[in-house]
C-alpha cells in the first residue's frame, strides 16, 4: 500500500512467499503472511532491506508498527497483542 497510512487502518500482510522463488532476504516473518492487523504507528522511511541485502540501489519505504491478535495466527497462542515492524510493500487493504 502506498501513501501514508494512519493509525487504526486495517491491513493484511501479503500472502507471498518469495523464499520459494530463489535467493532473497525478507524482513516479514513467515507467521504473518496473510494475517490481518491494524496500523499502530508510522515509524519513518528506510531503504528497502530486500535490496540492501544484495547491495542493490534501495528505495526508501514507509515502515509501520502493525498490531496483530496472536490467537488469529496460532489458536494456542498466549499474549494479548503482537506488534511487528512492516514495510508498506508488504501491506494491502483489509
Amino acid at each position: 500500500m502506498s501513501g501514508l497510512l494512519s493509525p487504526g487502518t486495517k491491513v493484511r500482510v501479503r500472502d507471498d512467499w518469495p523464499e520459494t522463488r530463489g535467493a532473497c532476504h525478507i524482513r516479514t516473518p513467515h507467521y504473518l503472511r496473510g494475517a490481518e492487523g491494524v496500523v499502530e504507528k508510522h515509524l519513518g522511511a528506510f531503504p528497502n532491506p530486500e535490496d540492501l541485502a544484495f547491495a542493490r540501489p534501495a528505495s526508501r519505504l514507509n515502515l509501520y508498527h502493525v498490531r496483530f491478535v496472536p490467537q488469529a495466527i496460532w489458536p494456542d497462542a498466549g499474549g494479548e497483542a503482537l506488534v511487528v515492524e512492516l514495510y508498506e510493500t508488504w501491506l494491502e487493504a483489509a
Partner: peptide, 12 residues
C-alpha cells in the same frame, strides 16, 4: 558490507 548482506549470508 551492510548488516543486511550479513543476514542474507547467514540465511544462506
Amino acid at each position: 558490507m551492510s548488516v543486511d548482506e550479513l543476514r542474507r549470508g547467514i540465511e544462506a
